[in-house]
């Protein structure tokens, strides 16, 4: 018989593994560097220019062959549909929506378009255990619906609540989200449909690094017009879609509590431990169990012997 697995060897392995796990901790998140694609594209959204015409929604619907909406895109009553101040969200039929914000002290409403922000380090991508998501060098976060198993972890991981689920389909449910018009446009260097449709040029398509320059220039050239911040430059580790606003961002629905590190960093230490726990703990605790129950068979033997003697 080859090397026999003894209780002792199992215990040894378990103890050694535990010590190793303490010594070789996953790398600290402080050392994290964003390895973003240098020439990736993005879109700069200037909230001061948007007039809420919904041309982007209509263009997106046509480009992505989405189902016909209940109301035409010229119907502005959709802005007031949400009860108790709830805003419209992306769903399986709409990859982008525009919301209206009445900001106190401002004589006109502001409008904000939402869609996937195409993070530099997407939380949806890192949370997906079947690796359905891809961040392309052009900047788009796309996904392969064929390998999606419908676990919806990405919906929870996304800090912007963007991926949605096709609940209406019982047999082919899949995740639905904006893909930056990757298949039909971005791949060929063209701007997404929403950008092309925008009459006010509230959406500007370009290299992300150039958009940051344009954004900063607008802030500098138009004194007191803009908040001195480009949303998305650092939020959640940086996003391909960037935003300029004339009012504090939280007043137009932006989450200002997001960390500047990628969302992945919040869970990386924990996730780094998972494989170790899965491999070492079974051996360790099996060892403990064997150790704890080592004497039981002997005790049984002794009892039997006593009974036999008694007879």
């Amino acid at each position: 018989m080859p090397d026999k697995i003894t209780r002792r060897s199992i215990l040894k392995g378990g103890v050694a593994g535990s010590i190793a796990s303490l010594l070789f901790r996953p790398k600290s998140s402080k050392a994290h560097q964003i390895k973003a694609y240098q020439n990736s594209m993005g879109v700069l959204v200037d909230l001061t220019r948007c007039v809420g015409c919904r041309s982007c929604e209509a263009a997106c619907n046509a480009e992505q062959n989405m189902p016909e909406p209940a109301k035409p895109f010229t119907d502005m009553s959709v802005f007031d549909e949400g009860a108790h101040g709830h805003k419209r969200r992306t769903d399986e039929t709409t990859l982008t929506v525009v919301n209206k914000y009445d900001v106190p002290g401002l004589d006109h409403p502001l409008f904000r378009k939402i869609q996937c922000n195409h993070c530099q380090e997407p939380a949806c991508l890192t949370s997906c255990f079947v690796a359905a998501y891809t961040k392309t060098p052009e900047g788009a976060v796309i996904y392969n619906a064929d390998v999606c198993v419908g676990c919806r972890t990405c919906m929870i991981a996304c800090p912007f609540y963007i991926p949605t689920f096709k609940y209406s389909s019982a047999f082919d449910p899949k995740i639905v989200k904006c893909i930056f018009c990757y298949d039909t446009r971005l791949k060929y260097g063209q701007p997404p449909a929403c950008v092309e449709a925008c009459p006010q040029e509230a959406l500007t398509f370009g290299k992300r690094k150039d958009l940051l320059k344009i954004g900063r220039r607008r802030i500098v050239d138009n004194k007191d017009k803009y908040e001195d911040h480009i949303y998305g430059e650092f939020e959640a580790g940086g996003t391909s879609w960037l935003y300029l606003s004339s009012v504090p961002f939280e007043k137009v629905g932006f989450d200002m509590t997001l960390p500047h590190q990628p969302i992945l960093d919040s869970v990386k230490n924990f996730l780094g431990m998972v494989p170790m726990v899965l491999t070492i703990w079974p051996a360790l605790f099996t060892g403990f169990h064997l150790l704890a129950t080592r004497k039981e068979p002997h005790a049984k033997d002794e009892n039997t012997t006593k009974q036999e003697v008694g007879e």
Partner: peptide
């Protein structure tokens, strides 16, 4: 509005960026 005009590839990239 072309994506190309907004990139740093063009000759007018210093001033006509916006």
């Amino acid at each position: 509005q072309s994506g190309k005009a907004r990139t740093s590839d063009g000759s007018n990239n210093i001033y006509h960026i916006d």
